[in-house]
Simulated assay, not measured.
Amino acid sequence: MDTYESELRLFSMWMKNRGMTKATQHAYLCDTRSFLHSIYPASLDEVGKVEMMGYLSQARERGAGDESRNRKLSSIRTFYKSLVEMDRLHLNPAAVIAKSKQEKNRIPVYLEEDQLEALFEPMEGKYAARNMAILCLMAYAGLRVGEIHRLNRQDLTQDGSLHVLGKGRKWRIIPLPDILHVHMRQALEERIEPNKSKEEAFFVSQFGRRLSIRMIQAIAEEMFAKLKQKNPDLHAKKLSSHKLRHSFATMQIRSGTDIRTLQELLGHSSIETTQIYTHVDNKQLKHAMNNISGKIPGLRHRDVREEMPT
C-alpha cells in the first residue's frame, strides 16, 4: 500500500485545509484505503469507472446496504476530487457513478415521552450533573454526539442560547428551555478541572480531557441498559444515542412544530432529511383515517363494531 501513500498524504492535507472534522477525515481515509487495497497495484490514472463499480459491487456482496455503498462512493469521489484540485490527476471517474436510491421515509426508532422520563430516573453518581446535561441535549435539544463533543464553555450564553457547530462546519443557535439551561449551568459548575489550562471543552472526562465521542455514547448506552431492565418491551429495540435525537424530533412534530423550524433546530441541510419525522406518529394517521370512516359506502347507518370479526 506504500504505492498510494503520497496521494493519501495529499488527501489528508486537503481535508484539513477544507476544515473537515477529524471524524470525517478518519471515515474518508478508511473508505479510501479499502478502495485502494482493492485496486492495488494499479496506478490511479489507470483506474476508471469499471474498477470502481467492481469495488462497490464487492461491498454489496459483503453485505453493504445503500447507505454504506453511497458513503464509500462519496469517499472515493472526494479522494479523486482532492487529487484533481492538487494537480495530481486530470479526471475524477467517480463523479459519473450514480448513487444508489435509498429507502425513503423509513420510520426512525425513538422513545416515547414516558420512556424518556424513565431513562432519566436512575441518574446519579459523581458525574450525574454532567451526564444529565449530555443526555438532555440529545433528547430535548436534538444534538448529535459529535456536536456535544465539540461544545465549548463559551458556546452557552447567559440568556440560555446554545451555539452548536454541526455537520459541514455550520453553526446554528438553539434557545434552550429554562430547565435545560439550569442543567447546563449546573454541569458547568461541577465541571472537572481540565489538565490543560487552555482547554475550553464544556464536557470534561475524569482524566481532565475533552469528553470523547465514544465516552458520550457509552454514557447513553449505560442508561439504555438500565431502562431496558425496567421495560422488557424495549429489549428488542436497538437504542443508541442518536435515537434520542429521533425522540426529540418526534416530540416536536407531535407538539405542532412546523417542518422548516424543525429543520433549523436539527441542523439538516435538506428538508427531505427532516421529513421522515412527519410519518412517525401512528395516532395522527389513525385520527386522519377515522375522519373518513363515516363516509365509506354501506357503513354510514350501521354499527360496524357488531360486524367486526373476532
Rank of each mutant, 00 (worst) to 15 (best):
V96K: 09
K22F: 08
M53K: 15
H37I: 10
I107M: 12
Q25A: 10
K49G: 01
M86W: 04
K99V: 10
Y28L: 09
R18N: 09
R88K: 13
A23P: 01
K22Q: 14
H26C: 09
Y28T: 07
L111I: 08
R60K: 13
L36K: 07
E85Y: 03
R60P: 03
A64E: 11
M53A: 14
S74Q: 03
V47H: 02
K22W: 06
N92E: 02
V96A: 11
R88A: 11
S82G: 05
G19M: 08
P108E: 02
C30W: 10
L29D: 12
L44I: 05
K99L: 12
A64Q: 08
Y110I: 05
A42F: 06
A94S: 06
F35W: 03
V47N: 02
E67C: 13
M52F: 01
G63H: 02
Q58Y: 08
S75L: 04
K104D: 11
G48H: 01
M52Y: 00
I76K: 05
R69W: 13
I76C: 02
Q102T: 15
F79W: 00
K101W: 02
K49H: 04
L56C: 06
V50S: 11
Y40T: 13
E85I: 06
S34T: 12
N70Q: 07
Q25G: 15
D31Q: 11
L111A: 08
A94K: 03
R106V: 15
S82Q: 04
Y55C: 05
L89T: 07
L111H: 04
R106F: 03
S74A: 15
I107Y: 01
Y28W: 01
H26K: 15
L91N: 14
T24R: 03
L89K: 05
G48C: 05
Y110D: 01
G63Y: 00
S68W: 01
A98N: 13
E46C: 10
S68I: 11
P108T: 07
R33A: 08
H26Y: 08
K72M: 12
A59Q: 13
R69M: 12
R106T: 15
I107N: 05
P108Q: 03
S74P: 01
L56S: 02
R77H: 01
P93C: 03
A95S: 14
V109G: 07
I107E: 05
R18P: 01
K99F: 10
S57K: 12
T24V: 09
S57W: 03
P93I: 02
E67Y: 12
S38H: 10
G54L: 11
A27K: 06
Y110Q: 01
A42H: 10
A64F: 08
Y28G: 05
S82R: 00
Q25M: 14
D45K: 13
Q58G: 15
K104F: 01
A64M: 10
I97G: 02
R62Y: 09
A94T: 02
S74C: 13
L29W: 00
L89Y: 04
E46S: 14
R69H: 15
R88N: 06
Q58C: 11
V47G: 03
P41C: 08
A42V: 06
T24P: 00
E67W: 07
L73F: 02
